[in-house]
Amino acid sequence: MLTTIPGIGPIAAAAIISEIGTHPAEFFASDAHLTSWAGLCPGNHESAGKRKHGTPRKGNQHLKPLLVEAAWSAVRTEGRLRARYHRLVLRFGGYRNPAAKKKAIIATAHTLIVNIWNVLAGDTPYTDLGAGFYDRRTDPERETQRLIAKLNALGHTVTIEPAA
Rank of each mutant, 00 (worst) to 15 (best):
Leu34Thr: 01
Leu154Val: 00
Ile11Pro: 14
Leu154Asn: 02
Thr127Pro: 02
Gly7Lys: 01
Arg80Lys: 12
Lys58Leu: 15
Ala14Trp: 10
Lys64Ala: 13
Thr3Ala: 02
Pro98Trp: 11
Ala29Ser: 06
Arg142Leu: 00
Ala149Trp: 01
Ala107Pro: 12
Glu143Ala: 06
Arg96Ile: 15
Ala153His: 03
Thr4Gly: 00
Ala13Met: 14
Gly94Trp: 10
Thr144Arg: 13
Gly21Glu: 04
Met1Lys: 02
Arg82Asn: 05
Ile11Gly: 13
His156Ser: 10
Gly130Asn: 09
Ser18Ile: 09
Arg76Cys: 09
Thr127Glu: 04
Pro140Ala: 05
His33Cys: 07
Gly54Pro: 08
His110Glu: 13
Lys150His: 11
Pro98Met: 03
Ala32His: 01
Leu81Ser: 07
Arg137Gln: 13
Ala38Val: 11
Gly130Arg: 12
His53Thr: 12
Pro125Arg: 02
Pro6Val: 07
Ala131Cys: 15
Gly155Asp: 00
Ser36Tyr: 02
Ala153Cys: 04
Gly21Ala: 05
Ile105Ser: 07
Gly59Asp: 04
Arg146Met: 02
Leu151Val: 11
Leu129Ala: 10
Asn44Cys: 03
His156Cys: 01
Gln145Cys: 09
Ala32Cys: 04
Arg137Cys: 05
Ala149Ser: 05
Ser47Ala: 09
Ser18Asp: 12
Glu19Val: 10
Arg137Val: 10
Ile8Leu: 08
Ile8Glu: 13
Pro140Phe: 01
Thr35Pro: 07
Cys41Gly: 04
His156Trp: 12
Ile160Ala: 04
Gly132Tyr: 06
His156Lys: 10
Leu90Cys: 01
Tyr85Asn: 07
Val114Gly: 02
Asn115Phe: 10
Ile106Glu: 14
Thr22Trp: 14
Trp37Cys: 04
Phe27Lys: 08
Ala100Met: 06
Ala109Asn: 07
Lys64Phe: 07
Thr157Glu: 09
